[in-house]
Amino acid sequence: MLSFINSAELFSLILTLATVITGGVFFLDKYRWQPQQEKETGVTDKEQTGWVAQARSMFPVLFAILIIRSFIIEPFQIPSGSMQPTLLPGDFIGVEKFAYGLHDPVFHKTLIPTGKPQRGDITVFIDPENPKIDLIKRIVGLPGDTVIYRDKTLYIKPACNGQKVCPAAYEVPKQFVGVTKFTELGTDLDEYKEHLGNVEHHILRDPNLPEMYSRYYQQPGSPVGEWVVPKGHYFAMGDNRDNSLDSRYWGFMPEQNLVGKATFIWISFTFNHNPDSSCPSWLPNGVRFNRIGAIH
């Protein structure tokens, strides 16, 4: 079973088991072992030592970490450039776990529903193709929407939820900002400001890279580059449009795969990837203080 658990889920499982075990020791000692010992010896308030004392001292800390990580905020590191220019490799973000419901930390079943993803949200979710890893992308299509990506232009036909006149498909507005410092295989990428629902954000496009229609996920009954989002699913895309492996290629993201909503950057590191450097590539060599704060 562990071969199908990603590192974040494995950590949650270990944390939950450790909390349950130390909690069991805590309550057994407090309400059974200690009163029995006091009754037998007549000594009260005796200082505990050994593994029982260690377990009792660890329980409150583990319990607090479990509550915070499972229901409030979980840290996440940006591993790639698929969300540039919004998020950069080396950004460490806070993921709001309660944005889309309170879930149990092991099986991820919804305990209390608190909301649904909105168009434009940046979400962390379990990769539908590889459950061992988590992905971060922007929600583009909601259940029932028709998403069209053609000639590197995004169109959306919102779901018809019982309206007398169903919404028509529209081109998602965007304005050219300019050529950027971001590059891909030596090509300078173009930057656009996009207005996706109520969210204004920036995207990147590679002017030299043709659209990869042959690699797109082909939904039965739909033309290439057009997808109807099923109930209970979402369509997610990276802001670095030509350098993101997302719903265009693997299909739809199930609602049960949601981990949380990305809300803020709490630290951002730079790394030295120069192969001639004596400094390991995994070791930070600088801090981008200007990136700390809310994600826009």
Rank of each mutant, 00 (worst) to 15 (best):
residue 86 T to D: 00
residue 112 I to R: 06
residue 107 F to L: 15
residue 94 G to I: 04
residue 104 D to A: 07
residue 115 G to V: 10
residue 97 K to C: 10
residue 138 R to P: 09
residue 82 S to Q: 09
residue 95 V to S: 12
residue 133 I to N: 10
residue 61 V to G: 02
residue 118 Q to A: 15
residue 122 I to L: 14
residue 85 P to F: 01
residue 70 S to R: 05
residue 62 L to T: 01
residue 104 D to I: 07
residue 75 P to H: 12
residue 52 V to I: 10
residue 120 G to W: 08
residue 65 I to C: 09
residue 135 L to Q: 08
residue 59 F to V: 06
residue 121 D to N: 15
residue 118 Q to L: 14
residue 136 I to K: 00
residue 52 V to R: 08
residue 55 A to Q: 02
residue 113 P to W: 04
residue 104 D to Y: 11
residue 67 I to R: 08
residue 91 D to G: 00
residue 141 G to D: 09
residue 90 G to Y: 01
residue 125 F to W: 12
residue 117 P to M: 10
residue 58 M to F: 05
residue 81 G to P: 00
residue 56 R to D: 12
residue 123 T to V: 15
residue 99 A to C: 13
residue 76 F to Q: 08
residue 69 R to E: 05
residue 51 W to A: 08
residue 136 I to A: 13
residue 72 I to C: 11
residue 143 P to L: 10
residue 117 P to F: 11
residue 135 L to K: 06
residue 59 F to I: 03
residue 74 E to D: 10
residue 57 S to I: 06
residue 84 Q to I: 01
residue 93 I to T: 13
residue 132 K to P: 00
residue 112 I to S: 04
residue 55 A to K: 01
residue 57 S to Q: 11
residue 133 I to C: 05
residue 131 P to L: 13
residue 132 K to F: 03
residue 87 L to W: 01
residue 102 L to D: 09
residue 125 F to N: 05
residue 58 M to T: 01
residue 139 I to R: 01
residue 133 I to H: 05
residue 111 L to M: 12
residue 79 P to Q: 06
residue 85 P to Y: 01
residue 67 I to E: 05
residue 127 D to S: 15
residue 80 S to I: 00
residue 90 G to H: 06
residue 95 V to T: 15
residue 114 T to R: 11
residue 116 K to G: 03
residue 103 H to E: 14
residue 131 P to E: 13
residue 61 V to R: 07
residue 63 F to E: 03
residue 96 E to D: 15
residue 91 D to P: 03
residue 93 I to N: 01
residue 141 G to E: 11
residue 82 S to T: 05
residue 66 L to R: 07
residue 102 L to H: 08
residue 119 R to I: 14
residue 107 F to K: 13
residue 87 L to P: 00
residue 54 Q to H: 03
residue 92 F to C: 08
residue 106 V to C: 04
residue 82 S to H: 02
residue 61 V to I: 13
residue 75 P to L: 14
residue 56 R to W: 04
residue 132 K to H: 09
residue 137 K to M: 10
residue 105 P to N: 09
residue 93 I to D: 00
residue 115 G to T: 09
residue 94 G to K: 03
residue 69 R to Q: 05
residue 114 T to M: 13
residue 130 N to V: 09
residue 89 P to D: 00
residue 106 V to P: 02
residue 92 F to R: 12
residue 104 D to N: 12
residue 106 V to G: 04
residue 103 H to P: 00
